[in-house]
Lab assay of single mutants.
Amino acid sequence: MSGNGNAAATAEENSPKMRVIRVGTRKSQLARIQTDSVVATLKASYPGLQFEIIAMSTTGDKILDTALSKIGEKSLFTKELEHALEKNEVDLVVHSLKDLPTVLPPGFTIGAICKRENPHDAVVFHPKFVGKTLETLPEKSVVGTSSLRRAAQLQRKFPHLEFRSIRGNLNTRLRKLDEQQEFSAIILATAGLQRMGWHNRVGQILHPEECMYAVGQGALGVEVRAKDQDILDLVGVLHDPETLLRCIAERAFLRHLEGGCSVPVAVHTAMKDGQLYLTGGVWSLDGSDSIQETMQATIHVPAQHEDGPEDDPQLVGITARNIPRGPQLAAQNLGISLANLLLSKGAKNILDVARQLNDAH
């Protein structure tokens, strides 16, 4: 009898209710805020589980004197976190989706994509230029951005401005803007500013005609071990179906173009009346040469937790077992079709030249 009692006690200790789920994140304040929001949602869904947040620095956090596009290494903000995932030191990792490459290392998958916040870019102005827009900034004003995508589009749109690289986390960039006289304004992701509670610093939100956004911008991705079915089931509740389908289309477009950090590629997606609209573009580094096109596809946005595919093969690095396969494939095909259209119009040449120029500098 006593033996059975011990077995029952052991089973209770090993039951999922007692389990601590370890969540990996970057150390920056924004990353911690984003991770806290994901953990809060998981806690609400699984009140019996405990969650421990483990923060670590990544290569991208450490190399702050070089433009991201020049470092010449993929997975700048993800490699150390993936290493911890691989060694079973954490069970899942919360990322900004735009930091996750469209091809993940073997053994990993994006197990959830959370509801997207505003994906557009924002302009934050130096205190002396508050009330201005990019259009009304004085001639030769210097605007800071760490992104080739932003610089290429904005140089084309605002030729009277000069664009220079600015690195560091959000706090560091804002301090550089406010305390030094080098920059009249800087460009940042609206979602990051909003998550930090800095709505009052948003001086201008850039519309798609001015600057399309990065693939996955404004959404959070939760990376897990691809074979860890328990954790895949656990994080599945975080999937937002519309965000998922938009981001599958965007990531398929980028992957098929073979774009990345070192080339200016941008997108804009919208879901309306059962249609998914995808606009994508590529630019030369100075913005003088560009190709942009829009395509659409009829896609039914499923309700969360309709029964999805059981075999769960990944699409552009994403596993969404609780979302039907048909809409996911339709979104992926839309991204591939748009990429093929741009490639047929000469996108590869623009991107190759951009890559060579970026590598040469």
Rank of each mutant, 00 (worst) to 15 (best):
A40K: 13
T41S: 13
L42H: 01
L42V: 07
L42A: 06
S45H: 08
S45Y: 13
P47C: 07
P47W: 05
L49Q: 13
Q50K: 15
A55P: 11
S57P: 05
T59I: 06
K62I: 15
K62P: 03
L64Q: 08
L64G: 14
L64P: 13
D65K: 14
L68T: 06
K70Q: 07
I71N: 10
I71S: 08
K74G: 09
S75L: 10
E80W: 07
L81I: 11
L85V: 10
E89G: 09
E89F: 13
V90R: 01
V90G: 02
L92Y: 02
L92K: 03
D99E: 06
D99N: 04
L100H: 01
L104V: 10
P105F: 14
P105S: 09
P105A: 11
P105L: 08
G107V: 08
F108W: 14
T109S: 10
G111Q: 02
A112L: 08
P119T: 12
V123N: 00
V124P: 03
F125H: 03
F129P: 00
E135C: 09
E135S: 08
T136A: 08
P138S: 11
S141A: 13
V142M: 10
V142Y: 11
V143A: 13
V143T: 06
G144L: 06
L148D: 06
R149Y: 08
R149C: 03
R150I: 02
Q153E: 04
L154P: 01
R156E: 11
F158E: 04
E162T: 03
F163A: 12
S165M: 06
S165F: 07
I166W: 12
R167M: 07
L170W: 01
L170Q: 14
L170N: 10
K176F: 13
Q180W: 06
Q180Y: 11
I186V: 11
I186E: 15
I187Y: 02
L193D: 03
L193T: 06
Q194N: 06
R195G: 04
M196L: 12
G197C: 14
G197I: 00
G197S: 12
H199A: 10
Q204K: 06
I205K: 08
L206H: 00
M212A: 03
V215N: 00
G216M: 03
E223D: 08
K227I: 06
D228Y: 03
D228N: 13
Q229F: 13
D230S: 14
L238C: 04
H239I: 10
D240L: 01
P241Q: 15
T243M: 00
L245T: 01
R246Y: 06
I248A: 03
A249G: 02
E250I: 01
L254P: 06
L254W: 15
L254K: 03
G260C: 15
V263W: 02
V263L: 12
P264Y: 02
A270Q: 13
M271V: 08
K272R: 10
Q275A: 00
L276G: 05
L276K: 01
G280Y: 00
G280D: 04
G281A: 12
W283K: 01
L285A: 13
D286W: 09
D289R: 09
I291W: 08
Q292E: 15
E293Y: 07
E293Q: 12
E293W: 14
M295K: 12
G308W: 11
G308D: 13
G308Y: 01
P309T: 10
D311M: 14
P313K: 08
P313D: 03
P313S: 14
Q314F: 13
V316G: 08
I318A: 00
T319E: 04
T319R: 02
A320S: 02
P327Q: 15
A331D: 07
A339Y: 04
N340Y: 11
L343R: 14
L343H: 14
S344N: 14
Q356L: 10
L357C: 01
